[in-house]
Design a protein around this nucleic acid. Sequence first.
DNA 1: TTGGACTGTTACGTATCCGTCGCATAGGCT
DNA 2: AGCCTATGCGACGGATACGTAACAGTCCAA
Lengths: 230, 230
Amino acid sequence: MGKGGQPRVLLVEDEPAQRTVLAYNLEAEGFAVTQADNGEDAMVLVDEEEPDIIILDWMMPKVSGIEVCRRLKMRPETRGIPIIMLSARAEEVDRIRGLETGADDYVVKPYSVLELMARARAQLRRVRPSTAGVVLEHEDIRLDPESHRVYRGEKVLKLGPTEFKLLVTLMERPGRVFSREQLLDLVWGRDIYVDTRTVDVHVGRLRKSLMQHGGADPVRTVRGAGYALG
Amino acid sequence: MGKGGQPRVLLVEDEPAQRTVLAYNLEAEGFAVTQADNGEDAMVLVDEEEPDIIILDWMMPKVSGIEVCRRLKMRPETRGIPIIMLSARAEEVDRIRGLETGADDYVVKPYSVLELMARARAQLRRVRPSTAGVVLEHEDIRLDPESHRVYRGEKVLKLGPTEFKLLVTLMERPGRVFSREQLLDLVWGRDIYVDTRTVDVHVGRLRKSLMQHGGADPVRTVRGAGYALG
DNA sequence: TTGGACTGTTACGTATCCGTCGCATAGGCT
DNA sequence: AGCCTATGCGACGGATACGTAACAGTCCAA
C-alpha cells in the first residue's frame, strides 16, 4: 500500500474524457492516481508505480485490456494486484472471458462512478483485510471497528446497527459531503430500495445518539447536497 | 518458543502481495515473522531461525511446498515443527491429505486471515503445552488450555466441549466482535454445516455456565454483528 | 441396556430497530 | 414579506434479531 494511507490506483483508459472524469473522482475519493492511455505504457507503469489496484479498459488500441490483464496475471510479482475491467458491452460472454483472464471484477459501461469506487474499495479490502488496530477518530469521537465500540470523550455511546454503519462511512472521510444516494449505496447496499428520506431520519437518530451525553452536533447538513462530518 | 514470548513463524509464500498481507497480520497478532519466497530459502531458514511454526504455500516454483513439507517431516530435528499448508483449491487439500506429507493442518485460499491465525495458535498450543503464560485471562475469568479448566474468581466452572472452544476463541481476542459465521469457522470448523442460530444457543449456554456461580454476564451481544467478550 | 451429558434444530416470546408518513420549521429566492 | 422547497422530528405499524426452553438424536460409560 502507498504507505500511510492513500491506496495507489493505475487507471488505463484510452479515451481522454472518460479517463479524466474517472481520475478526478478517484482522487476525490482519496486514491493516488496514475494514468495510462494504452496497454504498453500500463505494463511499464505497473512496475514503476507498484499500484495497489488497476482499473483497466477492455477495448484499447494495440495491446488490449484483456491482453494486459492476462500478462499481469501470469507474472508472479503482479498477480496479486486486483484488476477491475471496464467494458462497453454487457454481454455475458465478455464477463466470463474477462474473469477467465484473471480479472477480479468487471464493470459494464455506462457504470456508476460510485459503484466503480465501491468495487475498487471492496477489492482493496479483500487483498488487504488488515483493519486490525485501526481506530477511526474525529474530534472527540473515537470508533473502533473491531470491537464495534464508539466513544465520545470518555463515555461509551450506544447506537443501532444502521447508525453505526452510517457513522463509519462518515468517519472514513471526515469533511466529505455524502449525498443521500451515496449514503444509501454505502450504508444500505447497492440494490436495496428505500426512500432517500430514510437517510434523513437515520442521520437524525445518529445525531441524537452522538449527543446522548451532551456535546455539539458533529454532523453538518449541506442543504441540497447531503451530509458530512465536521 | 522464541523465549520471552513471541512465537516465531516462518512464512513461505512466493506471491509478494499475499505474503506481505499475511506477514503484517501475523506481526499484528504478536508473531515474529521470517519470510521466504521459495522452498530452498525456506529449508535454510528453518535451521537458522528455528521457527515454532511454519506456514507454507502449496504451489511454488522449484521446490514446492509439499516437497518442503515432506523433507522437514523426514528430519527428526524438524519433525516436531507444526506446518500449516496453504492451497488454492479445495480439491488439493484432498491430495495433500492423500499424499500424507505430514502437514498438521490445511487452509484453503481464499482463507480468512482470522481463521489462519486461530489455527496457527491452535497448533502452537498443541505442540507447546507450556505451563507459564499460556493461561488466558480476562477480568475474573481464567482459562488454562492445558488442563482444560476454567476458573471464575476462585470457583471452577464446568463447561462442555463446545462451550470451552467458544470461550477460548473469544478470550484469544477480548473485545473483538466475532460474527456468527466466523465463530462457526473457528469453533465448529469450516466444512461443518450447522445453522448460524446454533451459535446463539451455545452462546446462551456459555453465558449460563459462566454465571453458574453468580457474577455479571461477560459476553456482549452486538446486534446485527455478532458476539464479543467484554 | 440404561442413564447421563452433549449437540443441533425448532418454535415462540420479546425487545429493538427499521422505514414511512405527516407536520413543523428553516433556508433560500423573487 | 411571501412563497417554495429542503430538512428536522415525533409517531406508528411492521419486521427482524436475539434469548431461551423444549425436543430428539448421538455417544459413551456404567
